[in-house]
């Protein structure tokens, strides 16, 4: 595996572990952007990260935030994504575990905010055959085009969350603050007017495989965490089995490679936004 030379990819922050996954005094090896890393957790709980084969590259930057361990291999010109809800303490935090996906991180992100697959991939939970229509939503750029948002999304969901007792129309906003991060803000079924959050922090190993680190911040006092976790894993494993069959594994960004419909507005915006960002890693830039 070779370390990417893509500066746009290198100069970003990535989650490489959930901090409590690595006990004190233990180390773990992993791969980020084609670069092998050794992560070591000292007895004081602090983390160090070194390149397995340095080849003259600077040591990685390491931070702990939101319970996750973040690494940058380059010189990021921005901070780790701001998610103020982590410090609000009104929701329950659930670490959803790592899931490996043999596809590009961008394929995972695109699938995450796609609404039209709900009825056919998550039948009985996030969608149903009788209500497959994707109502109109809008796409916005925020923070000087740093962030892509799909807002006002809605869908009729038979069982929108582990806490759901009946079908309801659920409103969503999707936030994509970096090519490899997406956070959903979804109507809480327990506290009307408040939002639950589900976030994906993707660790791209190479251009065609990644690990998805993810969390939920939910209003749910009823269900035990394991019950909520089983609900999420059911959804995620369904997505994963679809992602396995998407080709090419890298995400095509040329308009000539797609035949979109109105419901794909967020996907199209994501692909154009990635194209403009100058990112090469994990993208298929062939025009036909």
């Amino acid at each position: 595996m070779t370390r990417t030379t893509d500066l746009v990819a290198l100069n970003d922050w990535y989650v490489v572990a959930f901090t409590s996954e690595i006990p004190k005094g233990h180390s773990e090896t992993t791969v980020l952007l084609g670069q092998s890393l050794v992560i070591y957790r000292g007895w004081d709980g602090e983390f160090q990260c070194a390149l397995a084969h340095g080849d003259g590259h600077p040591p990685p930057l390491v931070r702990q935030k939101y319970g996750f361990l973040w690494v940058s291999l380059g010189r990021p010109d921005h901070d780790i994504v701001s998610v103020p809800e982590f410090s609000e303490h009104e929701r329950r935090f659930i670490h959803r575990g790592r899931i490996g996906v043999p596809s590009s991180g961008q394929r995972v992100i695109e699938n995450f905010f796609d609404l039209s697959h709900f009825s056919f991939v998550h039948t009985g939970t996030l969608g149903g055959y009788e209500s497959a229509e994707v109502p109109k939503y809008s796409v916005e750029f925020r923070e000087q085009e740093r962030e892509l948002w799909a807002v006002g999304c809605s869908f009729v969901q038979p069982k929108a969350s582990a806490a759901a007792g009946a079908a309801s129309t659920i409103y969503y906003d999707y936030r994509i603050p970096s090519p490899f991060i997406s956070i959903i803000y979804k109507d809480s079924l327990v506290r009307p007017g408040r939002k639950d959050l589900i976030g994906l922090f993707i660790q791209p190993h190479d251009e065609e495989s990644c690990t998805v680190h993810s969390f939920a911040l939910v209003h749910d006092e009823q269900n035990v965490s394991t019950h909520i976790l089983h609900f999420y894993h059911e959804i995620f494993a369904q997505d994963r089995s679809i992602l396995l069959h998407q080709t090419p594994k890298k995400l095509p960004v040329s308009p000539r490679r797609e035949i979109p419909t109105i419901s794909d507005a967020s996907s199209i915006a994501y692909r154009r936004w990635l194209d403009r960002s100058g990112l090469q890693f994990g993208l298929d830039r062939a025009s036909a």
Partner: peptide, 10 residues
């Protein structure tokens, strides 16, 4: 009886 197999390893 749901068991937290991953990530909990229960």
């Amino acid at each position: 009886i749901k068991v937290n197999v991953h990530p909990g390893g229960d």
